[in-house]
Design a protein around this nucleic acid. Structure first.
Length: 189
DNA sequence: CACACGATGCGCT
DNA sequence: GCGCATCGTGTGG
């Protein structure tokens, strides 16, 4: 099965919707002649909300890719030592992205910074096109029968700006954290 | 298990 | 200068 990269259309939707759609798809990274594939099991959506890099509503050098067209990688550097990778959503001009937080099938790829380290994702990949199968792309994946999606709050966000925009596949080993706070099944029963 | 905290660079106010 | 979409380690219960 020669899976092709997911195309532009897949990404052209609201960040919240894309976040859910990304669960179960394969994140693919070219490593020399080989390709590493990890199953996305944990994500967070960001738009122009208070916790987003685009909270100011304005384009800055760092967040510019978030405002651009969907289907590109937004990779940023944080805490002086870590990278985090996002998939850009929404229409051109509208900020929105989905933070990749956890993979199954790639050793140590749980948590956004460790995910990047495991797949050699750094600043060089900021702004790269995810639809051409060059360095980094996504392939369609199946969500298993009966596999539950849990919706909960994002990690590392101040309590006063909390939103339930984190999603993960219940029971996946690649999920970075479970919350003690209320978490619910998505869609709500 | 629950915090607390340091490492370390840099975007933004 | 402040604080961060983090993580590993260290302490205490």
């Amino acid at each position: 099965m020669t899976a092709r990269p997911l195309g532009r259309r897949f990404f052209q939707r609201p960040a919240l919707e894309l976040a859910v759609a990304l669960l179960g798809t394969w994140l693919c990274r070219r490593r020399g002649d080989a390709v590493a594939r990890g199953r996305i099991v944990e994500v967070e959506a960001y738009t122009d909300d208070a916790a987003s890099h685009a909270r100011s509503g304005r384009r800055t050098p760092r967040n510019a890719v978030m405002f651009g067209p969907a289907g590109y990688a937004y990779v940023y550097f944080t805490y002086g030592m870590h990278y985090c990778a996002n998939v850009v959503a929404e229409r051109d001009g509208v900020p929105g992205a989905v933070l990749l937080r956890g993979l199954d099938g790639i050793a140590g790829a749980h948590g956004p910074a460790r995910l990047c380290r495991a797949l050699d994702i750094d600043r060089h990949l900021d702004g790269v096109d995810l639809t051409n199968g060059d360095q980094l792309w996504l392939e369609r994946g199946r969500r298993r029968r009966g596999e539950r999606i849990i919706q909960t709050t994002r990690i590392g966000i101040r309590a006063d700006t909390e939103l339930p925009w984190r999603f993960y596949l219940a029971g996946s080993p690649g999920v970075s954290r479970r919350d003690r706070a209320a978490e619910g099944e998505y869609p709500p029963l």
